[in-house]
Structure formats: structure tokens, C-alpha cells
Amino acid sequence: MFAYVVRRLATVLTTMLAASLIVFAVLQIVPGDPARLMLGINATQDAVDNLREQLNLDDPLHVRYLTWLVDMVRGDFGNSYTYSVPVRELVAERIIVSVPLALLALTLSTIVAIPVGIFTASRHGTATDTATMAATQFGIAIPNFWFALLLVYVFAITLRWVPAGGFPGWHEGLWPALQSLLLPAIALALPQAAILSRITRSALLETLHEDYIRTARAKGLPARRVLWHHALRNAMIPVLTIMGLQFAFLLAGTIIIENVFYLPGLGRLVFQAIQQLDLIVVQSVVTLLVAAVIAVNFLVDLAYAWADPRLRSRTR
């Protein structure tokens, strides 16, 4: 198990390095002169030279990459060009919006989807099953930002139960902050819940056809106990994969959803930075988000090993 973790960790680090290289390449090499891109074509040569110096653009590429990487690891994300503050501060005040939002959405989708999946699988072929599966088809087809608009229209504009957007900050208390995260989280969670419940159902149904289920039945266990004690844990393996992927979707989803609800989160930060061509912010925040996705997938791998003893002993 220890060897497995260490080896996975090595893969994770390589993937992160490769990803950071891609981000660096896309933002620093592809545009030609990043300073010119950031300042626009109307900028004076002086201003451009100034910025080039500030960004050390005259250093060779590998030096720039390594400096950036070492700084990132040390926690120095550079200074935002548009806000003129350290990117680290920007990230710090945004992360406390985005991470709770993504976690809330993931929790909502999981606590709805897994019971629905189990319920429909245990009633396979009944009218309840068919109706629920039809409903999930709609759930998958609904774009989350459109659903968000609908939620705003109904609960914020018409019923006035929750604010239509904005974020009061955690210092205003837990409840007002949660209130403003609730609609965005629901909007993010709905399509994910629909997908996850279908995956849970089909993974369970698939598992129920395995030979060892028949062995368990031949032991005299009733169908329900077989489902909970034998099928579920095996079926969780594909479900975990999807949950790992969903975290990436949720993170990306915040870019749009935070825009719909005017939430000051990472997604909105990176989106605005892209529009303003603040490449320093973009480079750091994108790298952070990608690192988060890789880290979550690493956790999913560990969960795999927990769920499947075959992986634990296999060393590759």
C-alpha cells in the first residue's frame, strides 16, 4: 500500500509539472510578446519595455519558467497587473467562496444521486425506475447556467427568498453567506446529480449480474442484503471515478455560475483576468485549479485502493 501511494504520488507530481509547462507555454510563448498582448496595440514602446522588465521577459525561457515554478511552490504567485496587488491575496479572498461552493454542490449532488441510484436499481424495471430515469434524462440535458437563471427568476426575483446574486462575505455570518451560495450550488449540482444517479444505477445493475452475487444468494442472504453488502462496494468503483471527474466539471462550472450570480470566486477572477489579459493572474490561478483537479484525482485513486484490494496489492 505504501509503495502504491508513493508511486502514485510520483505520477501526480510529473503530471503537475507537465501541466504547468503547458500553461506556461500557452501564455508565455504562444502570444509572442506577453507584455504587448497585455498592454494592447496602442501602448507605447516605453510602457511595453517597462512591463517587460517588470516581468523579467528578457530572461531566457527556461529561466523564466523555473523562476515562476519555484516562486509558485514558495507561495509567491506574482503581482496582478490590473489590480496591482499580490495574486496570492486575490486568490486567498476568492478561494473561500469557490471551494465552499464546489464542495456544497458536490455534497448536494452526492447525497441526492447515490440514494436515487440505489433505489432505482433495487426497483429495476418498475414504473418508479422508468419515471426516475426519464427525469434524470432531463437533468442531464439542462445547461446549469440556464437552470441558474430560472432559479434566480423564481426564488430571487419572484419569491424574494434569497438574494439574486453577490456575496456578503463570511464575516456577515454563516447563514447569509450560505444563503447566497445555495442557488448557485443547486444549479451546479442538478446535472451532476442526474449523471451520478444514472451511473450508480447502471454500475449496481451490472454488479448484480456477477457470479459472486449468485454465490451470496446461495448462502441464503436476501436480495436486499446482497445489494448492500456485496454489490454496493463493488459498484462504488466506477461511481468514484465519475465523482473525481465531476470535481473538475464543478470547478470549471464555477467560471460560468459565478458570473451568473456575481460571486467573487476564483472562476470569476480568472474569467475577468482573461478578459483584461492579466496574464500573471491567469497563469497562476489556472495552474492552481489544474493542481486542485490533479490532487482530487489522486484522492480518488487512493479511494480506489481502499475499495478494491486487488489494486492495493498490485504494484503497478
Binding site: T15, A18, A19, I22, V23, V26, L27, V30, P31, L37, L245, A248, F249, L251, A252, G253, I255, I256, V270, F271, I274, Q275, L277, V282, V286, L289, V290, V293, I294, N297
Partner: peptide, 17 residues
């Protein structure tokens, strides 16, 4: 590695450049 970039995020990056 490609999977580590949330699709929308990379799309936003590509269109930015």
C-alpha cells in the same frame, strides 16, 4: 494531463489568446 484541465477552463484560455 489534458483531462486535468477542466474543459471550460482550457476553452477560456484558448479563446483568451
Amino acid at each position: 494531463i489534458v483531462f486535468a484541465f477542466p474543459a471550460l477552463l482550457s476553452a477560456v484560455m484558448i479563446t483568451a489568446i
